[in-house]
Design a binder for these strands. Sequence first.
DNA 1: TAGAAACCTGACGTTGACGTCAGAGATAGC
DNA 2: GCTATCTCTGACGTCAACGTCAGGTTTCTA
Lengths: 123, 123
Amino acid sequence: MRIGELATKTGVSVRALRYYEEQGLLESERSEGGQRHYGDKAVDRVRMIQQLYAAGISSASIVEMLPCLATGVASPEVLARLREHRSSVVRRIDELQETLLQLDSVIAGAAKALASGVPCAPR
Amino acid sequence: MRIGELATKTGVSVRALRYYEEQGLLESERSEGGQRHYGDKAVDRVRMIQQLYAAGISSASIVEMLPCLATGVASPEVLARLREHRSSVVRRIDELQETLLQLDSVIAGAAKALASGVPCAPR
DNA sequence: TAGAAACCTGACGTTGACGTCAGAGATAGC
DNA sequence: GCTATCTCTGACGTCAACGTCAGGTTTCTA
């Protein structure tokens, strides 16, 4: 498939896909005329990249790990890297859950005050 | 206290504190000579700002919600805003947990392959 | 009352993941 | 074969949350 199709299939912009290639995250065959062509696996690859981005992992780190992520095998260094990232994701989740608690208490207080008719003026 | 002390107490840079003020997130009294002075509450305020940033809430959104967060009371609009943010935080957590699962399976596979002596070459 | 240390404003720099635009070539459908 | 649509490269723009630097003022300490 060409780049536009991959874009609509993954929900990622064409520009982003070119950017991924630029960063070495994604490969493509080129047609006679120089246009990019992708196989079906590219869809999964792009989704994986998005996942890793969402986990706060930079493209530089992703590019280091990708050959191993693709094969499911890793060098000790990459394995250590992955474990680092794992714990950073865990930390991030903890932070967010902490934030969630705070938000909840604020929301509860606000809803209660609102119900009792003492709203705060919006700005 | 002056800005340097607030910075060390909160672990946030002096520049960041000035930026918060610039964005309307943080207030200060000024001395005769124009230097910022903060009360003790400022420490909590800064921590709250950091929490909200960590939740992926932009300073523009924070500044809308802050007067209400400070008093614990909110207008219906702000309350709705807070609930939106709450659900976005929940979604974010879900995504991260999904990612965690993926990372775990990759790590497990890699560790196993590594133990059986079939490492993948690092780049 | 020095002088060091902290602080001020203003302004430009940085980083990552793209957005957007221009000008030109490639493909697909009729 | 024509034309609409897609795609190409290259390059500059964007946005948020600060970093950093310059040149000057204020505050604390000895």
